[in-house]
Design a protein around this nucleic acid. Sequence first.
DNA 1: TTTATTTTGTAATAAAACTACACAATGAAT
DNA 2: ATTCATTGTGTAGTTTTATTACAAAATAAA
Lengths: 276, 276
Amino acid sequence: MLSKIKAARSGLRKSEQKVADAVIDDPDEAVQSSIHAIATRAKVSEPTVIRFCRALDCVGFQQFKLKLAQDLARRGTFFYQDVTAQDTSKQLASKLLDGAIASLVQIRDQINEESLDRAIALYEACSRVELYGSGGSAVVAEDAQLKFFRLGKPAIAYSDPHIQHAAAALLDRDALVIAVSHSGRSSDILKTVEIARAARAKVISVTATRSPLAQCSDVALTVDVNEDSDIFSPVKSRLGQMVVLDVLAVGVAVRGGDHMLEQLARARRAIDFKFV
Amino acid sequence: MLSKIKAARSGLRKSEQKVADAVIDDPDEAVQSSIHAIATRAKVSEPTVIRFCRALDCVGFQQFKLKLAQDLARRGTFFYQDVTAQDTSKQLASKLLDGAIASLVQIRDQINEESLDRAIALYEACSRVELYGSGGSAVVAEDAQLKFFRLGKPAIAYSDPHIQHAAAALLDRDALVIAVSHSGRSSDILKTVEIARAARAKVISVTATRSPLAQCSDVALTVDVNEDSDIFSPVKSRLGQMVVLDVLAVGVAVRGGDHMLEQLARARRAIDFKFV
DNA sequence: TTTATTTTGTAATAAAACTACACAATGAAT
DNA sequence: ATTCATTGTGTAGTTTTATTACAAAATAAA
């Protein structure tokens, strides 16, 4: 629509061009304005605004505004922007959300299909799952535990590094470890994975590409996002990790066929509506 | 917007629900209708339609239609698709990521600036923060705890409902509660909030629009997403809740000025690279 | 310059959105 | 069960917004 206006501009009459200019100048303002407001800003009469709409193949002003609004909605591209102390709350929220969205888009385009398939195969071959993550990653591991224990095999998450060490020492070749770490460089998690592998357990890591953790795992599901604008904690990588683990869990479920999917959907409704 | 309507539906009055149903039934028709047309189709009076719009945080019918139109326009970019047993891993991942992205886009467009400002003010006025969430929402509460305790005031998260009750009873007027719940209907969390309010603590809720929890909070930060395609747990609303709480925390930090932002950024690097 | 044609604005009309208020339904307290 | 208070819903009127009809400028052609 916006480009349509630009294209049509030179074919319009003089005062209609003024309307076109006013709309192009601030389209977001335009979609919220009445005919009167636009007419005033473009310094033309109200019927001129309507004629302008009709010239653009709209039946009236309302339809024009609707089409323009939809156009603006679609134009949404998401990118990082640093927050500043001068931002209004609205700007702040939009910037942060945009950043989060951008990171998910990035992850979507980076998903490694082969790793995912191998991870699914590892789950199918194991008899139980342990999830390790500390600090912020503990949250992700716990969230994943909730998903995995509905898939039919025992799943448990540990967030204390010492307990992780102890738990890892007790694993066997039928156990599967899912190790979550943002940087993949924490010595605790590396030590834990080392112990787990010595016990012949399989290891899936959810971490940064080419990090030490990724390199010492059987399968690495990598999550790399631009963290520059995260102030407190790597929110974006946390979101990414959660979604990637969701993908893994759903992937496993899907291998169980449509029947299993339905069953899980029912289970979810029964549980969540009561408790969450 | 559409998912907001669905989420808010049960919190609406009877005739407003009729309007909701009419809109959900054919949203494309709705964006082109006048109040009169919608009122007729829903078999209610015209003011009821306006009240319905207001209940959804719109200033009037026009704004409602505009938001709805933009929502419909965006459907095309990232949209929900049900996963099937025939999907390849890649397709599966894309579908799930698209769904997650779509939900964040929705949340971005729904952010209520006024609520956010009020929530920030509540944090600034309090002397300590307690975060309550159980089940899946416990994960969100814990994640938020990590953010909030870096802002300079004590912050603690409880995930056991009984302990939440006990903790809430010990609050005073300087305490701030952040209550997280997907549905906003769990009796545990409602009870906890009731106790907290009786102790004169302030309550910010992170939950569905017009849910009981939202209604009994001082400020509601609403998170409404279409959960149809979530198999295990409401991943999408979980992501949304985490981001919304991140926005709140960053909002608080930003009020502390650029200096505080820098300090936090340094703190984050120091902490996270070691532990996560 | 006059005349036809196009363009633009004024003023009236129609339609839509919104408000104030009154009646009806619901629920709590006696 | 009856009254009172509260909440919900509709009727009727008001204001705002969109649209039309038409007349006055402006422009171009003869």
